[in-house]
Each structure stands twice: as structure tokens, then as C-alpha cells.
Simulated assay, not measured.
Amino acid sequence: MNMLHNRYKFSARVTCGLVLFLCLLFIESSNQKAYAQQSTNEKLSDVKSAISKQKTTIKQVGSKKQKLLTQLKNDDLAIAKIVKALNKTHASLKQTKKRLNELVKEKSQIIQAKKQQEAVLAKQLRTAYSTGHHDYLKLLLNQQDPGSVQRNLTYYQYLNKARINEIDQYKQTIAQLIEITNQQQQQAAQLQSLESTQNQQKLALEKNKKQRKATVAQLNKALLTSKQKLAKLEQEEADLVSALARMAELSKQEIDLNGLSKLKRKLSWPVKGKINRSFGSRKQDYLKWKGVLLAAPLGRQVKTIHNGTVLFADWLKGYGLVTVIDHGEGYMSLYGHNQALLKSVGERVETGEPIALVGQSGGQSQSALYFEIRHNGQAVNPKLWCR
């Protein structure tokens, strides 16, 4: 009995121990689960907070990018305005200098004529002096032969008339000389004023260029990833296609333009320069160039490839200052990244006529012309038309 009792007590102790162990194990497991749940909740909270911050950052970047794009547009337009004014001032300066040179030549000719007239008058005065200063009355009284009197009288009348004519001409020459001198002074003053205006415009241009450079740098900094750049390019291309579609509708009104179908490899490039980006080459990921990028110096004239009507002349996101020409029959040519636009919407242009100046608007780091040819809204290779 004692042995059975001892066994029972031992078994009871083991059972209690196991129960106690299991209880402790359960409690430990519960504690671990609670700790894990708490850790998971904390991590989830951290992730949610990070997502919220990221959304806020993305929103701020998007807002900043939009502001920078607006600033870029304003910078490009300000530069274009100054360049157009500078271009006009340069033309006026050229014309004024030409007029000044003409006035210098005219003045030289008048001075030469004045010297000749003075010589003639001096000769006439010496001739009159050599006759002894006789007046008509003395001539009449001292002459006995009526024929001689008449001849002398006619001679002196001729001399007198010639002298009066020379004096009148001399007066006119002096008046012309005074007038030319006044014009010369006015032109010189205008030249000085134009040069001063030109210097001010150049300073303003440099200031705006620096502002634009800073804007482009900030804009590039805002585009952190290639995915963002791709999205930007996709949006810009979509905007361009949409704008060209609207222009195509407007161009249907033109019935006297013959298009470009018969002009393959007969047209001149809009500007002389190396092709930095070819039609169809990779632009970003799967996006390809729909036109060509021609490297050219800042301010070089951009000329239309064929006659037509200006459909668009304004700033376009991603392409800067753009001119689009309608050539009829569904053909259009596009000229982008200009520094200034020389033609307005609705104007007719002839083949080879300057329509813009090469620039780097739209966020470009180097001066170049972006050039496209489209037919019925589809981009075609410009090399098939230009030589």
C-alpha cells in the first residue's frame, strides 16, 4: 500500500509539474504573441506614416514642379521679348549707321561743290575788279561808238547775271550743308540712344538667362527618377499631339496650299547644324524621337522649309517657344526650343523666310532647334524631305 501511495503521490507531482509547465509555456507563448502583435502594429503604423509622408512629399514635388514649369515659361517668354526688341534695335542701329554714312558722303560732296562755287565767285570778282569798277552810267558816257556801248552793256549784264546765279547756288549749297549737318547730328544722337538701349537690353537678357538657368537646374533636380522623367515626356508628347490635332482641324480651312508630297529631298533644312538626335532614335525607355534635334548657335535664323500659314506661335511645355506652319494637304512643320518667334498666328510665310531664332527654351541646356514634319497627324522622317 505504501508503495502504491508513493507512486500515486509521484504521479500527482509529475502531473502538476506538467500542468504548471504547460501553463507557463502558454503564458510565455501569449506574451510572445502579444509582443509580436504590438511590434507588427508599430511597424504598420510606421509604414502608414512613411506612406503619408511620401504622399505629402510627392504632392509638394508636383506643386513645386508645376511652379517651376510656370517660371520656366515666364523666363522663356521674357527672354523672347527682349531678344525681339534687341533684334529690332539692331536693325535700327544698322539703318542709322547706314544713313550716317550716306550723310557723310553727301556732306563731303556739298563741301566740294561749295569750294568750286567759291572759286567761280572769286574768279568773277577778280574779273570785275580788273575792269576798273565801272558802272553802267560811266560806260555810257565814256563810249562814243553806240555799237561798242551795246556790246559792253550786254557783256556786263551777262557777268552780273552769272554772278547772281552763282551766289544763289552758293546760298542753296550753304542751306543744304546746314540741313545735312543737322540731320547728321540727329542721327548721331539717335545712334547713341539706340546703343544705350541695346546695352540695357543686353544686361536684361543676361539677367533673364541666369534666372532661366537656375529654374532649369531646379526643375531637373525635382525630377528625381527615370520613371518621373518618362511620365513627364509622355505628358509633353500627349500635349503636343493634342495641340497638333486641334491645329489640323484649323488647317482644313486652307485650300490654296499644295502640301509637301511632291517635294521629297527637295527642301532645305530650316537651319544649318549637326543632327544631335535622329528621327526614331531612343528618347527615354520606349519613347522615340518624333523629329530631329539640330545643334545651332543661339540667335541663328530659323527658316520655314516651304510656304504656308502660321497655325501656332506660343510656348508649349517641353518644347519651349514653338512655331507650327501649315503647308496644306495635311502637312505641317514644327519648330521648337526657339529663343524668339518672328511670326504671329495667321501670317503667311514664303519658302526660306525667317520665322524664329534658335534658342534653348523649354528647359534645354544647349541651343538647338527641334524640327518635325507631320502628315495627317503622324510624324514622318524629315530626312525624306530635306537635303
Rank of each mutant, 00 (worst) to 15 (best):
Y155E: 05
Q183C: 01
E179Y: 07
T154F: 14
K105I: 08
E179W: 05
R151V: 08
I110S: 06
P146K: 00
R126M: 13
Q184H: 10
R163P: 04
A175H: 13
T131C: 04
E179T: 06
Q190N: 07
T96L: 00
Q124E: 04
Y129E: 11
Q172G: 08
S92V: 06
N182A: 06
L100P: 05
R99A: 13
K138N: 12
I178P: 02
E102V: 02
H133Q: 13
N165Y: 15
Q183H: 07
S130E: 14
Y129Q: 09
K171R: 14
T181G: 01
Q185G: 02
L191W: 04
K107Q: 12
Y156K: 02
K171A: 15
L121C: 01
E195Q: 09
S92G: 00
Q176D: 15
Q187V: 00
S130I: 06
K115Y: 14
R99S: 13
N142R: 01
A128S: 12
E106Q: 11
I110G: 00
Q124P: 01
K171N: 15
Q109T: 08
H134G: 03
R151M: 10
Q200D: 12
Y136V: 14
L159D: 03
Q184T: 09
K94C: 09
Q187W: 00
Y158W: 10
N101E: 14
A162S: 09
N101T: 11
A128H: 06
V83L: 06
Q143F: 01
H90T: 14
V149M: 12
Q109I: 12
Q169C: 04
I111L: 12
Q150C: 04
K97I: 06
S148R: 06
Q157R: 06
T89V: 12
H90G: 05
N199Q: 09
Q184P: 03
L103H: 06
Q169R: 10
L141W: 09
I111G: 00
N160M: 14
E118W: 01
Q176P: 07
S108R: 02
L121E: 00
V104H: 04
N165L: 13
T96F: 00
T173C: 06
D145P: 02
K98P: 09
L86V: 04
L86Y: 14
K171G: 07
Y170V: 02
Q144E: 14
Q144H: 12
Q187D: 02
A113W: 07
Q190L: 10
N199M: 07
Q144M: 03
Q117C: 01
P146H: 01
T127I: 14
I164R: 05
L121Q: 01
K98W: 15
K97R: 11
S196H: 09
S92C: 01
Q116I: 12
A119R: 03
L137A: 13
N182R: 05
T96Q: 00
T131M: 15
Q109D: 14
L194M: 05
V149C: 03
Q116H: 12
K105L: 08
I174L: 15
V120M: 06
Q144L: 06
K138E: 15
Q95H: 09
H90I: 11
E166F: 11
